[in-house]
């Protein structure tokens, strides 16, 4: 099932920025999506395991709220249902994997950062075994890798040592330029 990601993103741009749903309502919306896709949704205890019992409880609750918001506000819901009807997934295994994959993404990031938003949507599509219209499976995987915030930050940190050294040298250079300007101005009271 190929998802029309561009359309979903466009609809999301026009939607309210914050999720209006409580935790229970958000769980019900996601459950309904599974149910309409012909899949039995997680039990109440399953949702508790996915949110309240997680280490990143607060984060998971925020993410669930945003997921419900995106499902209701865009065509993601109907396309997810179609994907589930085409190729059912087991929520008990798929949902924990999804929440693990989006661990660093806060609701604020998903709302305000178009890259984090796309990563969040692609992770959902990946969970459903879907793809993005106009992209090959390889391109889909490459884009997901490019958007992987955790990986980017990890690799970014690796280069921080070099950056810190550069920053110290640069600070010295800028201080010299500052002193030079002050000296050119001359007299100080």
């Amino acid at each position: 099932m190929a998802f029309d990601l561009a359309r979903i993103k466009q609809q999301l741009e026009a939607a309210a920025i914050a999720s209006p749903y409580t935790l229970e309502l958000a769980a019900a919306i996601v459950s309904d999506t599974f149910r309409l896709g012909g899949v039995v949704p997680p039990q109440l205890s399953g949702w508790k395991a996915l949110t309240k019992k997680r280490k990143e409880r607060q984060l998971a609750e925020e993410q669930l709220g945003m997921l419900a918001h995106v499902l209701v506000a865009t065509a993601l819901r109907e396309q997810s249902i179609a994907a589930l009807l085409e190729k059912p997934v087991e929520p008990a295994a798929a949902l924990p994997a999804f929440f693990d994959a989006v661990v660093p993404l806060t609701a604020e990031m998903i709302r305000s950062n178009t890259f984090r938003q796309e990563e969040f949507l692609r992770r959902w599509i990946e969970m459903l075994g879907g793809s993005v219209a106009g992209e090959s499976a390889k391109q889909f995987a490459a884009r997901l890798q490019q958007l992987d915030y955790r990986r980017t930050l990890a690799e970014f940190d690796k280069a921080e040592g070099a950056r810190k050294q550069e920053a110290a040298r640069r600070a010295k250079l800028l201080q010299e330029a500052r002193d030079k300007e002050a000296a050119a101005r001359g007299w100080r009271e």
Partner: peptide
């Protein structure tokens, strides 16, 4: 490369 990636993903947000 990562610098450019992180910059792009943060700057516009």
């Amino acid at each position: 490369r990562n610098d450019a990636r992180v910059f792009t993903q943060n700057f516009y947000a």
